[in-house]
Design a protein around this nucleic acid. Structure first.
Lengths: 231, 231
DNA sequence: AATATAAGGTGTAATTATTACACTAAGTAG
DNA sequence: CTACTTAGTGTAATAATTACACCTTATATT
């Protein structure tokens, strides 16, 4: 590995692809930058790693500063280190994704100096992004699309109580294909990681669906098992 | 992301888990360190990233310096950034794995200053490793174990021409379980990514097995498809 | 009260993939 | 020519995946 430190000025940052599911759409949280470079551009939330924090800690901090939320499922997925990815010098960035239950406001007032505001934006109409953030987003999205086929991470995006139709819809949005209702239910219920509640949906203008809860204990058992989806 | 650079002295490095398959064993390439810290310890090959090279380039360079080989399949798998992982300061390291056809000598004379020598060591008897390299190895190994179940990366480890038994043995070593010969062959041949040759093994003191070649064209088609293994 | 609307909820048969399992064939060495 | 060692092969049972359509239930409307 390494010998005499440091060799040249370098710095690393964290960037986060924060997914949320709302109004039947998959969204990510973007910030409007307040500082140069790329001032006024949309960007992924991210910032430099502090001197005395681990990468994971930095990722959690950045998420907290934007959303006020802690203890969110985050996963590191790739590190981007092209020489010219930052116009002001060498910055290597470690990318994380997170999945959030969306229920708060659509626009957040972040408690950071570098972002004017943070907004949930549907992934199907993302604006141009600063730096190489479009590439980072792409890779993060690919990651969760793969992951969802063998690990039920989708639950992180749903409210605590949800209907099977909501769950299916989320899968469809992430996988970008439609699934067969009967097969989907059969498969999901077979996993045994859903707890059927004695409750039904409220406030809908049609037949209310049963609500389900995600069973974390049983989920843990399935953790490493591969699950796939067909049509 | 980032604003005014840099904030503090920091540096990043690459560490490589380089797999090879030889004498029926899965091995990795370790170096004996020539410099402080951890002088005389075994470590994963790795070094600081240069000012004007990308991460991928640095990984390839490090591999080249050790083995003289270029154009090897390498994949970034995780970045380790605990504050205290390096005794001399903050070093974030980006880890790559590589897979190599092993046919050269078992000990290499690396053309680097920081390594006294490089040796292929079976993963089942790894020595204590410098820094957090044991953790890095573990994660890399886990990665290829998962990956091999859905992508035929195993071919990178075999000679150009190989027998089905050799291939099966490699799978067994990586997955750490024995597989059924008939099922394994059926499945492998079904993928259609093997080309049967008109050649047989030479120099064995028993019935010689047919040799196969890996068909890269067809492999590319299967690339994203998931393949799993049972017993 | 009757009707329309909209989503909820359900089963089966066909196909495909996975698993378990044991013997004969072929070549080499003595 | 015999013994040894690995190569090579098929089938039946089980499990998983797919394709596919109708009735039910709650609400809203008249």
């Amino acid at each position: 590995m390494e010998t005499i430190l440091p060799k040249f000025d370098s710095v690393f940052s964290i960037d986060c692809v924060i997914f949320g599911f709302d109004e039947g759409e998959l969204k990510i949280l973007l910030i409007e930058r307040n500082v140069e470079p790329f001032i006024d551009w949309w960007a992924l939330p991210g910032y430099l790693v502090e001197e005395n924090e681990s990468l994971d800690h930095a990722a959690e901090r950045i998420l907290y500063e934007l959303t006020g939320l802690r203890d969110i499922y985050m996963d590191q997925f790739y590190t981007f280190g092209d020489v010219d990815r930052h116009p002001q010098g060498r910055v290597v960035t470690v990318a994380y994704y997170a999945m959030l239950r969306l229920n708060g406001p659509k626009e957040l007032k972040p408690v950071t100096s570098y972002a004017r505001r943070a907004v949930w934006i549907p992934i199907k109409d993302l604006p141009k992004l600063a730096f190489d953030h479009a590439k980072i987003f792409e890779r993060g999205f690919l990651k969760i699309r793969n992951k969802i086929t063998y690990q039920p991470i989708a639950f992180e995006l749903l409210p605590e109580k949800f209907t099977l139709t909501q769950l299916q819809h989320l899968y469809e949005v992430i996988l970008n294909k439609s699934l067969d209702k009967r097969n989907f239910r059969k498969k999901m219920l077979n996993y045994g990681i859903l707890k059927e509640l004695d409750e039904k949906q409220k406030g809908v203008s049609y037949r209310a669906a049963k609500l389900y809860k995600f069973d974390k204990r049983k989920y843990a058992r399935l953790f490493q098992k591969e699950l796939t989806f067909g049509k």
